[in-house]
Structures are given as structure tokens and as C-alpha cells.
């Protein structure tokens, strides 16, 4: 590997990383949205075919209360991060730290609620088309929502950290916090919209 001691390399423009975050999160969000659109398609496809008249068995009634609770957690988490992002305009302030923590805890609660719901259902994945779509859709929603949980946590943790000498190499950490939050929100809004679609289809339309 060649190296040229003492040679000065010019840096790439400083706005490259924030732009990478912005474009990358949009592309990621569209890819994940298409993943979930496949389940939406499966729902309508099987519902229309209704093979053997067993798309929806009579006892398959996803409990609306649970659905509302999970969806509410998802949306509140998005809203808290949105508020936190606005607070970030003045740097990592106390209100950002509180809102970031709220967003993270509520996001985690959504996953916990989903897991608890599975233990309180009166049907299983074998009970027809709707039940199958219900389990696959909600399960993978929870898995991808864990991505938001992780993402919010890293932003929050990053803002707690004091700038150290090691950070000099990568520049101003606080400068990258806001683009990071923007990117996380792009993803979380997509997840929020998916959550609404999932709730309407699986709990209301059936």
C-alpha cells in the first residue's frame, strides 16, 4: 500500500456527510416501504381470492385496543423526535435530551406491546389468510421498528457525549446531529405511515 508522508490531501466538501444522510435515508425508507407494500398486496390479493372461503375465519378478530396502543406509541415516538429535532436547532439542549429520551422509550414500548399482544390473541398464524398476513406483517413491522429504536438511541447517546480530542478528526459532532435526526425521522415517518396502513387493514378492514 503506497503512502506519501507529508502529502496534503484536500478534504471533500463538508456538506457531503449530511447530504449522504439525507439521500441515503430516503432511499432506505423507500426500499423498506416497498418491503411492506408486499404485505399490503398479500392482504388484498388473498382477501380477493378468498380461497376455500377461509381468508377470514370467524374467530379471527385482531383486538383493536392493542392495535391502537401500538400505533399510538409509534406515532408519539415520531412526534417526540420531530419536536426534539426542532429543539436541536439550538444545539443539543436539555429539551432535546428529554424529547429524545421520550421518543426512544415510547418506541421501545411499541415493541414490548406488540410482543405482549401475541400472548393475548385468540387465534394463531394457521387460522386462514388474514391471520397469516396479520402475523407476518406485524412481526416484521416490529423488527423494522427496532431499527428506529436503535437509531433514536444512537442520536441521543451521541448528544450526551462531550466533544473529545478524538472527535477532532471527524469534525464537529454536534453539526452532524441534526442531519442524523433528519435522516432518522425520514425513516420513522415511513414506518409511522406503514403502521397506520397496517392498523387500518389488519384491525379495521379485515
Amino acid at each position: 500500500m503506497s503512502s506519501t508522508p507529508g502529502m496534503a490531501l484536500d478534504h471533500e466538501p463538508a456538506e457531503t456527510i449530511p447530504r449522504n444522510f439525507a439521500v441515503g435515508s430516503k432511499v432506505l425508507a423507500s426500499a423498506v416501504a416497498i418491503f411492506f407494500m408486499s404485505f399490503v398486496f398479500a392482504f388484498f390479493y388473498l382477501r380477493a381470492l378468498n380461497t376455500a372461503h377461509s381468508f377470514r375465519e370467524p374467530h379471527v378478530n385482531p383486538p383493536v385496543g392493542w392495535g391502537i396502543a401500538i400505533l399510538a406509541c409509534v406515532l408519539v415516538s415520531c412526534a417526540a423526535l420531530e419536536a426534539g429535532r426542532r429543539a436541536l436547532a439550538n444545539g443539543p439542549s436539555t429539551s432535546w435530551r428529554v424529547l429524545g429520551l421520550v421518543s426512544w422509550l415510547v418506541a421501545l414500548a411499541a415493541v414490548a406491546l406488540q410482543a405482549t399482544e401475541y400472548y393475548n390473541l385468540h387465534f394463531g398464524a394457521t387460522d386462514g389468510g388474514l391471520a397469516s398476513v396479520f402475523f407476518v406483517f406485524t412481526m416484521w413491522f416490529a423488527v423494522f421498528w427496532l431499527g428506529s429504536v436503535y437509531w433514536v438511541e444512537t442520536l441521543w447517546a451521541q448528544s450526551l457525549r462531550r466533544p473529545s480530542t478524538a472527535d477532532a478528526e471527524i469534525g464537529d459532532t454536534a453539526r452532524l446531529l441534526r442531519p442524523g435526526a433528519d435522516a432518522a425521522l425520514t425513516y420513522m415517518y415511513m414506518m409511522g405511515a406503514t403502521g397506520i396502513v397496517a392498523f387500518v387493514l389488519l384491525y379495521i378492514v379485515k
Partner: peptide, 17 residues
């Protein structure tokens, strides 16, 4: 999920296709 949690997404006798 058809192979593990016994969902029936591709099983036509139970509402799949």
C-alpha cells in the same frame, strides 16, 4: 413463516394461494 409458524399464505386450503 409458512415453514416455521405454520402460517398459510401459500396454502390454498386455508385461505392462502
Amino acid at each position: 413463516s409458512d415453514r416455521t409458524i405454520d402460517s398459510t399464505l401459500f396454502v390454498s386450503s386455508s385461505g392462502g394461494s
